[in-house]
Amino acid sequence: MTNATQPEATLDERQPSQVELDRRAFRRKQNARSLLISIASTIIFAVLVWLLLINSPGWSDVQRSFFDLDTAISSFPQIIVGLWLNIQVLFFAAILVGIFGSLLAIARTLRGAVFAPFRLGAAIYTDFFRGIPLLLVLYLVGFGVPALGFTERLPMQFWGTIALTLTYSSYVAEVLRAGIEAVHPSQRMAARSLGLGYSKTLRLVVLPQAVRKVTPALMNDFVSMQKDVGLISVLGAVDAIRAAQIEVASVYNFTPYVVAGILFVLLSWPMIRLTDWYTARAQRREQMGGQV
């Protein structure tokens, strides 16, 4: 049987035809035009919003109490110190969530009657902690558990980390479980037929593929956690928000909150961009696979 398509010269070896050159010129012109339009419309929109804002009746009051440069500068050091605490809590909570969330997800996907209690326990856990507001978990863990008196007095950021871990593990477990179930059963079978046992199959074949499938969703959960780590301030831990609150109370000006807000946005921004980039790349890959 002969191949129907003749071998062609690759595109970069060939000089493109006039038709193709015309098409490319047209596309370039088209792109330049839409770029100009989008820049112009963005500028016009921004100016309109700005004009609306500064011409509003209460603008000068708002400016004084929310956007005061001197207050921003004077409160900045304390807020940065507080943010460092947020980052530390985030770091440990993320690691704990990774471990605990994976264990929960695995428990939920175990098969066989022996594991029924694990499955049930994990299911009840995830249902409960996905339903209960994080704020309540913080109060219960932060004020309730120490009151039991099992432990020495521990810093509030410790209990904050525990509360965040409890809640976010349930989110992450659900995401991971979806990933594990999306790995085709034939992959397990192929691994088992090579002589890999249950846990090696899980670790070397199923989990790596599952994590890959749900990476964008996991990154999203991480971004949410980056913000929610600010909630530990309700326990009295002096994080960025609590530090801002202290400043607000002493200078009777809300600018420190704005400073803290901007810092939180800056903190999560790289991760947000990374998530977008990764999701777009994964989508491109899949579409490429679809054409083959």
Binding site: S186, M189, A190, R192, S193, G195, L196, V205, P208, Q209
Partner: peptide, 20 residues
Amino acid sequence: ADRIRARIGVVFQHYNLFPH
């Protein structure tokens, strides 16, 4: 069973290679 499977090689209809 794992030891036994390790002594036998199997190839299926669908190539089932590990994509990762």
